[in-house]
Design a binder for these strands. Structure first.
Length: 848
RNA sequence: GCCCGAGUGGCGGAAUGGUAGACGCAGGGGAUUCAAAAUCCCCCGACUUCGGUCAUGUCGGUUCGAGUCCGACCUCGGGUACCA
C-alpha cells in the first residue's frame, strides 16, 4: 500500500487543473456567477502566514461555490506601487521597478504551489502602465465631472532632508533619517471630492447587511455626521467676523473664549504683523500631522489681543486665542470654548485662567464644575441656568434644537450638518506611484493631459541617492507640450496615493486587458464582488475609498448603478501574529531578532549567538521591519500545501487574530496521512457489514455541518466536524458500499481545504472526473432526524442528572421522569419542587 | 486622546440564553516491536470528605437558567486620513 506523499500528489493535480483550465473564469450566461476576492497583496517578495490564511479562506469559498454550480471568478494581482520599493532602492541602490517585478515573480512562485483556484490569466499589477494608464483615464473623467480639485493641505516636512515624510516616517516628532524635528507645512495638493458623498456613504451602510457590524460602525463614526450651529462672532475692532461651528450651541452662555487654528486666515494675518504671534504659530506647527499626535500634544494657546462680541449680549466681550488643538480641516477652523462642558476647553481655561461658566447642572447633584467637565449624555435631562430659549429642565438634544431655532429666528446663526470626513488628498511627492496626468502651463494654468497621450509613463532613469522626489529633478521628463495651447509646459510631478490603485482593481479584474478602464458586458456580468475578504486593518480607509470610487465610476459611466456598493459581502479576518523578540543596541535603538535566532531557556528568552536576554512582545502584528514573520515555505517544503492549508483553516476562528506557533503543523500532516490510509483501505474493501445506516446518518450530519461552517466563515468548526467524521469512519463496521459512499463524501467535503489530497482520494475511489468539478454532496434532511434525545436535568440551574427520552415525548411525561431521577431526588432532599421548566428537546430545570 | 474589537484548561479553540471545555495540539499511561519510528487504545480544568464545590479577564445586574444579554472597570490588539 502506498503512503501519503504530498510532494508527488500536489504537482500532479496542479498540472491536471491547469491542463483542464479548471479555474479560468468564463462569462457563462447559463450559470449564476460568484465573484470571490481577497484583498490583493503588496509584493514584498515573500508570502507570509497572513497571506496563506487569507487566500486559503477565499479559496475554500471559491471551490465550494464552484461545486455548488456557480461560475466563479477568483483572480489575483499585485498592489505594486508604494514606499517600500523606494526605500529598498535607497537602501540597496536598485530600482523600484526592478525590485517590484522581481518580488512579484518570487511571490508568485511561492503562491503557485499552494494550489489556490486562481484565474492567473487575469493577473494584474498596479505599477503596470496597462493598469495605471486606465487609472489616469479615470482621473481625467473624475476631473471633468468636478470630483477632483486642488487646495492647500498640511504635510510632514523634514527641514533637513527638505522632503515630505509619511506619517510612519515620523518617529516621536522627528524625521526617521535626518532625526530633525518635523514641522507641518502647507502644500497645494490634489483632492478627490469624497465629501460630496458623505451623506450617501453613511446612509448606504444600512444596506450592507452582509458586512460586519463593527466595520459599518467604524465607517459611520469616521464619516462623523453631526448637527450643529454656524454663526459668526462680530469683532470689536470691526474686522472680518469669525465664523464658528459648534455642536453644542446650547452652551453659548458658558462661552469663555473664542479659539482659532494656527492655520486660520486670521491667525496668518496677525502673524504677518506680529512676530510674537508668528513665533507662536510656528510653535503650533511643530510635530507631525497625525490625529493621535495632535490630540495628545500639550494644549498651547496665546491671546491674540482681539476681542469679539457675544451674539446674545453686545456688551459681553470674549478674547480670541490661537490654540494648537483646533484643526483647520474641521468645521471652520474656529470654535468657542465652553469650558464647563468640554474637557479640552476646561483644561485650556484652567491653564490660562479663563472663566469657567456652568450652563446646566445635574438634576440630583447641582454642583459647579471644578476640573472635570460635566458631560452627561445628550439624552439626559439637566437643569439649565436661565437658558436664553426659556428652557428649564430639558435634555441636551432639546436644548440644541431650541437654540438652533432661536438663532435662526433671530437671524444670527443657521443650523448646519457637519461631517468629520475630509476630502481625500491624493497627491504624493514620490516617484513610485501613478503619475497624475495633468500639465502646468504658464499661459493656460493647470491643464488635463489628453486621453490619447495616456499613459503618462514613469521614466526609468531616476536615482534615489538623495532624498526627495526624483521626478522633480529629472532633466527632461517634466518637459512637455501644453495639451491646450501647445506651448512648452511642465508635467505635474506628484503621483497618486496608492489607495487610489486599490480603489478600483476589483472592477478591473473583470476585464484586465481592456483598453478602457472597464467593459460594460464584463462588469454587468461579474460585478459585484459577492464575497470580499481581507484584514480588519482596512475597515475604514480602503473600503471607504473603494465605495467612493464605485460611485464616482458609476457617475462617469465605468460601472453600473448596481455597483455603487461594490462589495456585497465582506469578511474581515484576524491577523496572524507572532511574538516580537527585541533587544536594544548600544545607540539605544531597538534591535529585532528572528524567531530562529532566539531560544527559550530557564529565566527567559535569549539571543542564541550573544546570550543577551530579549524582551518578548507577544501577539504583535507580523511585520517585516520587526523580524517576526514566519515563513510558510518551510511548512510547504516539509509537509506540503494541503497541510499548510488544513492547518490555517483549523483551530482559530477566521475573524480572530491567530498567534502562530510551530507545533500543530505536524499534527495536521499526520491527520491527512491518516485520512489517506483509511480511505485507501476502504478503496480496496469488499463485503457486507453492520451499521451502514449509522455511518450514513453521520455522513449527512457532516455534510450539513461542513457546509454551514463554510457558508458562515467558521472553517474551524468545519474542520473539527471532519476530524470527527474521520474517527467515525475509521471505527465503523459498515459494509464496503456504505464506507465507499462515506469516503467519497469525505473527499468532497475536504476538497475546499485540501484539494490535492481530495483529488487523489476521489480518483482512488473511482470518482468521476475531478473532484473540483463534482457537485457538492446533497444533504438528505430525513437522515438527520433522531428518535431519541438526551436531556440534562438541572436543579436551580445546576446539572444533577440526565434522561434519554423519545424526541416527541410530551412535556408532562418528561417532567415526571425528570423529577424521578436519582440526582433530582437527592438535590430536592424530600422537598417539593416550586416550579419545573421543560424546554422540549433541550433541557429540564427544576426550581427548588 | 478618540473610534472599533478581543479576553474560556498547559496551548489553539467549541458552545440558537439551556449539560462549559466539542475537535485538535502538547502531556501521561498502555498495546504492538528484539528495540525504535509509525500506528492503535485509554486518561487529561482545579479542589474534594467522591455527596459535591469552584471555574469562561474583574466587579455588579437581568433571568428558572448567563461564556452568551445589560452596566462599570482592567488588559491586549486594530484604526486614527502620507504603511499597505
Amino acid at each position: 500500500m502506498s503512503r501519503y506523499d504530498a510532494s508527488s500528489i500536489e504537482p500532479k493535480w496542479q498540472k491536471a487543473w491547469e491542463e483542464a483550465g479548471t479555474f479560468a473564469a468564463t462569462r457563462d450566461p447559463s450559470k449564476e456567477k460568484f465573484y470571490v476576492l481577497e484583498m490583493f497583496p503588496y509584493p514584498s517578495g515573500r508570502i507570509h502566514m497572513g497571506h496563506v490564511r487569507n487566500y486559503t479562506m477565499g479559496d475554500v469559498v471559491a471551490r465550494y461555490k464552484r461545486n455548488m454550480g456557480f461560475s466563479v471568478l477568483h483572480p489575483m494581482g499585485w498592489d505594486a506601487f508604494g514606499m517600500p520599493a523606494e526605500n529598498a532602492a535607497m537602501a540597496t541602490g536598485g530600482h523600484p521597478k526592478d525590485w517590484t517585478y522581481k518580488n512579484i515573480e518570487e511571490m508568485k512562485s511561492q503562491m503557485k504551489p499552494m494550489g489556490w483556484s486562481l484565474d492567473w490569466s487575469r493577473e494584474l499589477a498596479t505599477c503596470d502602465p496597462e493598469y495605471y494608464g486606465q487609472q489616469q483615464a479615470l482621473f481625467l473623467d473624475f476631473l471633468e465631472k468636478g470630483l477632483v480639485y486642488r487646495k492647500n493641505a498640511v504635510v510632514n516636512w523634514d527641514p533637513v532632508d527638505m522632503t515630505v515624510l509619511a506619517n510612519e516616517q515620523v518617529i516621536d516628532g522627528k524625521g526617521w533619517r535626518s532625526g530633525a524635528e518635523v514641522e507641518r507645512r502647507e502644500l497645494t495638493q490634489w483632492f478627490f471630492k469624497i465629501s460630496d458623498y458623505s451623506d450617501e456613504l453613511l446612509s448606504a451602510l444600512d444596506g450592507l447587511k452582509d458586512w460586519p457590524e463593527k466595520v459599518r460602525l467604524m465607517q459611520a463614526n469616521w464619516i462623523g455626521k453631526s448637527q450643529g450651529l454656524r454663526f459668526a462672532f462680530e469683532r470689536v475692532d470691526g474686522g472680518d467676523p469669525i465664523e464658528v461651528y459648534t455642536t453644542r450651541p446650547d452652551t453659548l452662555m458658558g462661552a469663555s473664549f473664542v479659539g482659532i487654528s494656527a492655520d486660520h486666515p486670521l491667525a496668518k494675518e496677525l502673524a504677518a504683523a506680529d512676530p510674537k504671534i508668528a513665533e507662536f504659530a510656528a510653535l503650533c506647527r511643530k510635530g507631525g500631522t497625525t490625529a493621535a499626535e495632535l490630540e495628545t500634544a500639550e494644549k498651547l494657546g496665546m491671546d491674540t489681543g482681539l476681542r469679539v462680541k457675544h451674539p446674545l449680549d453686545p456688551n459681553w466681550e470674549l478674547p480670541v486665542w490661537i490654540a494648537n488643538f483646533i484643526l483647520m480641516d474641521y468645521g471652520t477652523g474656529a470654535i468657542f470654548g465652553s469650558a464647563a462642558h468640554d474637557q479640552r476647553d476646561l483644561d485650556f481655561a484652567r491653564k490660562y485662567g479663563l472663566p469657567v461658566i456652568d450652563t446646566f447642572f445635574d438634576l440630583k447633584d447641582p454642583k459647579p464644575v471644578e476640573n472635570t467637565a460635566f458631560l452627561p449624555p445628550k439624552t439626559e435631562k439637566v437643569k439649565w441656568v436661565s437658558h436664553f430659549t426659556g428652557l428649564d429642565e430639558a435634555t441636551g438634544e432639546e436644548a440644541i434644537a431650541a437654540t438652533v431655532e432661536f438663532a435662526e429666528k433671530a437671524g444670527w446663526g443657521t443650523g448646519h450638518t457637519q461631517y468629520r470626513l475630509r476630502d481625500w488628498g491624493l497627491s504624493r511627492q514620490r516617484y513610485w506611484g501613478c503619475p497624475i496626468p495633468v500639465v502646468h502651463c504658464d499661459a493656460c494654468g493647470v491643464v488635463p493631459e489628453k486621453k490619447e497621450n495616456l499613459p503618462v509613463e514613469l521614466p526609468y532613469d531616476v536615482s534615489f541617492d538623495i532624498p526627495g522626489n526624483p521626478l522633480d529633478r529629472h532633466p527632461t521628463w517634466r518637459d512637455c507640450a501644453c495639451p491646450s495651447c501647445g506651448k512648452p509646459a511642465k508635467r505635474e510631478t506628484d503621483t497618486m496615493d496608492t489607495f487610489v490603485d486599490s480603489s478600483w482593481y476589483f472592477a478591473r479584474f473583470t476585464a484586465p486587458r481592456a483598453d478602457t478602464p472597464t467593459v460594460a458586458e464584463d462588469v454587468d456580468y461579474w460585478m459585484n464582488v459577492d464575497q470580499y475578504i481581507g484584514g480588519i486593518e482596512h475597515a475604514i480607509l480602503h473600503l471607504l475609498y473603494s465605495r467612493f470610487f464605485a460611485r464616482a465610476m458609476n457617475m462617469t459611466g465605468h460601472l453600473p448603478e448596481k455597483s455603487r456598493e461594490p462589495f456585497n459581502a465582506l469578511f474581515t479576518q484576524g491577523m496572524v501574529t507572532h511574538a516580537i523578540y527585541k533587544t536594544t543596541s548600544a545607540e539605544d535603538r531597538p534591535v529585532y531578532h528572528y524567531p530562529e535566532q532566539v531560544e527559550a531557556r530557564e529565566g527567559g528568552v535569549f539571543v542564541k549567538d550573544t546570550g543577551e536576554q530579549v524582551e518578548v512582545i507577544p501577539s504583535a502584528k507580523m511585520s517585516k521591519s520587526k523580524n517576526n514573520v514566519v515563513d510558510p515555505l518551510a511548512i510547504i517544503a516539509d509537509f506540503g500545501a494541503d497541510t499548510a492549508r488544513w492547518f490555517v483553516m483549523s483551530d482559530s476562528p477566521p475573524e480572530r487574530d491567530v498567534e502562530w506557533t510551530a507545533s500543530g503543523a505536524e499534527g495536521a500532516s499526520k491527520h491527512l496521512a491518516r485520512v489517506y490510509r483509511i480511505v485507501s483501505d476502504i478503496a480496496d474493501a469488499t463485503g457486507e457489514g453492520t451499521g451502514d445506516d449509522d455511518l450514513l446518518r453521520e455522513m449527512h450530519k457532516t455534510i450539513k455541518a461542513v457546509s454551514e461552517g463554510i457558508e458562515g466563515f467558521a472553517f474551524n468548526t468545519s474542520v473539527a466536524k471532519l476530524y470527527g467524521f474521520t474517527n467515525t469512519l475509521q471505527k465503523s463496521q459498515a459494509g464496503a458500499g456504505a464506507k465507499k459512499t462515506a469516503a467519497r463524501t469525505l473527499a468532497q467535503l475536504m476538497s475546499p481545504m485540501t484539494p490535492h489530497l481530495a483529488e487523489e482520494l476521489w480518483s482512488m475511489l473511482g470518482g468521476e472526473g475531478l473532484v473540483a468539478d463534482a457537485p457538492w454532496p446533497k444533504l438528505d434532511e430525513a437522515m438527520l432526524v433522531e428518535d431519541t434525545v438526551t436531556l440534562p436535568i438541572q436543579v436551580n440551574g445546576k446539572r444533577r442528572d440526565e434522561i434519554t427520552v423519545p424526541t416527541d415525548m410530551d412535556k408532562a411525561e418528561v417532567e415526571k421522569l425528570a423529577l424521578a431521577t436519582e440526582g433530582v431526588q437527592r438535590a430536592l432532599d424530600g422537598n417539593p419542587p416550586k416550579k419545573v421548566i421543560v424546554v422540549p428537546g433541550r433541557i429540564v430545570n427544576v426550581v427548588a
